[in-house]
Structures are given as C-alpha cells and as structure tokens.
Design a protein around this nucleic acid. Structure first.
Ligand SMILES: [Zn+2]
Ligand SMILES: [Zn+2]
Ligand SMILES: [Zn+2]
Ligand SMILES: [Zn+2]
Lengths: 146, 146
DNA sequence: TTTAAATTGATACATAGTCTCATTCAGAGT
DNA sequence: ACTCTGAATGAGACTATGTATCAATTTAAA
C-alpha cells in the first residue's frame, strides 16, 4: 500500500522517517489503533522518532482523509481507522464497545448530490451505527427476565 | 425536548440535577459542543454540579445514543453532537474545520439490512463526509496559480 | 417518611496532546 | 555527487483533559 506514500508526496509533503514509521505501523495494525498503539509501534520500528511527530503525522493523515479518528467506548482517546478507498463503516456496540465492520454503504449518490449542491469537494467518509450487538441483547433479556 | 429525560428514565437512570443541567446545556447549544463548553454552561446553570459528573453524564448520554462524540479539527478534545431522531450527518472541511450539516441520508434500508443480517439492534448513526468546503477550494486554486 | 441503592462533589492524580526552538533532513536544482 | 533552503523534527517542559476514590447526599420506590 505505498499508495499512501504517493498521496503524501502529491500533496507536497516530504516522506520523512517519522511519517514512514507511522504509516507502516497503521497499515500493519488491524483496523482500530489508538495514538498510544501508534506510539508503541513506532518506538519499535524507529526509536528515533519523537512523540510530537507521531501526533503531527496523525493530524496530517487525518487532514488527507487517509485516516479518521473515532471515539469508541470511553471517550478518553480516539481510535484511528484507515479509510481505504476513502471510506470506512462500522457498528459500535454501546454496551460492550465491540466494533463490527461492514463493507457496503451505497453513499456514492448522496456524495455526488452534496458536492453539486454545496460546492464541496469530498475525499472520504465514515459511517457509524450505534446499538447493541447480539450478545448484549441476550444479556439484557436475561436481566429483565424476573 | 424532555424526550431525552424520558429516555434516561426508561433506561433506569435517575433524573439528577447533574444530568438535567448537562442535558439543558447541550439542548440549548447549537450543534457541536466540547466538554469544556458543557462544563462552562453547567457552571452557569447549576454551579453545584461537579466536574466529574459532567463527564460521567456525557459518557452516559453517549451510551444511550443521545449524543455522540466526534473529532473535529485538532485532536485535543471531542465535540459532542446531538442525534435527534437517532442520527446526525455533517461534512467536515479538512482545511478550515468548518462543519456543514445536512439532513437526508437514506440509510434506513441499510440499517434494516444490517439488523437482520448481523442480529444487532441499532439505535442511531452518524455519517461524516470529509473534504474541502467551497472557500478552501478557492484558496488552494489561488495558491497554485503561478 | 423511611430506606437502600444510585449518584454525587471534592480533590488529588494520571496521561494525552501541545508548544517552543535549536537542529536536522528531504529533495530540488545544479 | 554536492549544495542549499525551507520543511520537518526531537527533546522535554508544560497544559489541560479526563479519571479514581470515597464519604456524603439524593432520588425514587415502598
Ligand atoms: Zn455488545
Ligand atoms: Zn462508504
Ligand atoms: Zn474550509
Ligand atoms: Zn441518517
């Protein structure tokens, strides 16, 4: 996926060691990573990279719609998700914080509509549903049984 | 909108002064508030309410899909948005952090589909598009003009 | 009104993210 | 390959956001 490196370059940003390290960590992670996860991973990949640069890079990747922060479970710190192809979709269980991803969204049409109507240029999107997963519904049902 | 109070009650939570104060502040705010905004507002509405309870209530409202934290601009702190009717949709400009809301989403069908296929029970959703607003496209165009 | 469990406020604390600035580095031009 | 310049970085002090603890209070049901 050196696709991401390409996009940094095209947008006029230098391919520095810090940025390459952060990208590598995020790409190899499976889905949802916190900044702490990225800091830990980067410390292994390239210990010379500093704390501030990791945060700067996460911000940059967010501005480029390569990555998107989202709050899961406790609101302490965001999780970063890759937006491969510009989008990502998941369901968050509000009871156990489990995340279930899904592929289809059918949002292309509304995206085009919004671009025309509002004169915006859209580069990505995130769709999140909230609710209870199958397990947590069962638990609630059991608790209400008396 | 004492709808929200009703929902707290139904879910088995007490209608305490802290919770009522937080709800009042969020309902009267126009769209996107940070925890700092809520803390300030609550200090005016009911100065006896403590810092911790504000955070506890924001967490609770999030778990009930009454409110949803989202990441806008800097990574410092989340913005909380109301999910009236269970959903909210906006576009975030990745250049100037402006937020543009829009009403329609057409996601009812996919919600039903997911509930059936994954046996989840969905209570709300958030749809975010990322890109550049009209103004920021203009700026970029000007910068590239030489 | 009584009561028990839920919730709270105060405050000390942990930690996530920011700022500053001298130094380094990426990459374009030669 | 060598030079040069602005972009980017690392160190680390610093700010502020959110958390944990626990005795005291309050809600709401009986
Ligand atoms: Zn669950
Ligand atoms: Zn999509
Ligand atoms: Zn803009
Ligand atoms: Zn919707």
């Amino acid at each position: 996926m050196s696709d991401h490196r390409e996009r940094l370059k095209l947008a006029g940003y230098k391919l520095t060691k810090a940025r390459l390290a952060v990208l590598q960590v995020i790409e190899h992670a499976d889905g949802h990573v916190t900044s702490a996860d990225v800091l830990d991973g980067v410390a292994l990949v390239d210990p010379a990279v500093g704390r501030a640069s990791v945060f700067r890079t996460l911000d940059l990747l967010t501005r480029l719609s390569i990555v998107r922060p989202t709050y899961i479970g406790t609101s302490a710190t965001p999780y970063y998700v890759l937006l491969p192809g510009g989008h990502h979709h998941h369901i968050i269980c509000t009871v156990c914080s489990r995340v279930i991803e899904f592929a289809e969204c059918g949002l292309e049409n509304i995206a085009i509509l919004l671009e025309e109507r509002l004169k915006v240029k859209l580069t990505g999107h995130l769709l999140e549903f909230y609710g209870q997963c199958a397990d947590c519904q069962d638990k609630i049902a059991v608790n209400n049984e008396d």
